[in-house]
Design a protein around this nucleic acid. Structure first.
Lengths: 109, 109
DNA sequence: AATATTAATCGTAATATTGCAATATATATG
DNA sequence: CATATATATTGCAATATTACGATTAATATT
């Protein structure tokens, strides 16, 4: 075990879980916030900005990339990261649906 | 290692990460959707509904409870679960802020 | 070409997560 | 009280995650 039983759930549930998991880490939240806050793309000031080692940051960026939430373009020696607008908007909508489906308290608890 | 360096990040980032992590599993997404879809509170039809063993469901419910996202009230032999409205709304707002902070594509990537 | 700079990859240790069988707990009901 | 029902807890095996040192890869600069 130690293995999520993905075959039991719908593709939508699995995909949402994967993308939420990508965001569900303080370092990756911080990375996303930093990328968003910078008006331009971020060319890897992240190592200095956060207090984590370079391989660790690189790994977190890879996970965000794998989840499709950011994209990186090579700019000479460095790499520029920014939000992937389509996936970002899609995830926003998906999460919004989940939360909005809960209307008012049933006050039975 | 294997341990998130929480001291590096803000309380907000850590709390958001914890609550997102609670949702970031297909079983827990399915549980939340089922609780929401039922107009009344759910008294453990979950084991039959999802294809997971009873201890596994119980554990997932515990995690959602620990994250403050659901609450359970004892109803005789069984337990009724429903969304915790305050935490649910707060998390919705927090996530909404994160996503909304990204305006338009900077098209520099 | 040699060196510097930046980021990715590999390998590894520590810890966390997932899932379940077995068991425990707690409340009904006969 | 004995038994049934519903849920929680414990213990464990398999796997995943987190973090980083060491190394590699790739492009600039001298």
């Amino acid at each position: 075990m130690g293995l999520t039983k993905t075959e039991i759930f719908t593709d939508e549930q699995n995909k949402l879980a994967i993308q939420l998991k990508a965001i569900a880490h303080p370092a990756r939240i911080a990375i996303l916030q930093y990328i968003i806050a910078a008006k331009a793309c971020i060319c890897g000031d992240l190592v200095e900005e956060l207090g984590l080692a370079q391989p660790t940051i690189s790994q977190h960026l890879k996970e965000l990339k794998n989840a499709g939430l950011i994209q990186g373009t090579i700019e000479g020696v460095s790499v520029c990261y920014c939000i992937e607008p389509t996936a970002w908007a899609a995830l926003q909508k998906e999460i919004s649906n989940l939360f909005a489906s809960y209307k008012d308290p049933n006050n039975c608890c």
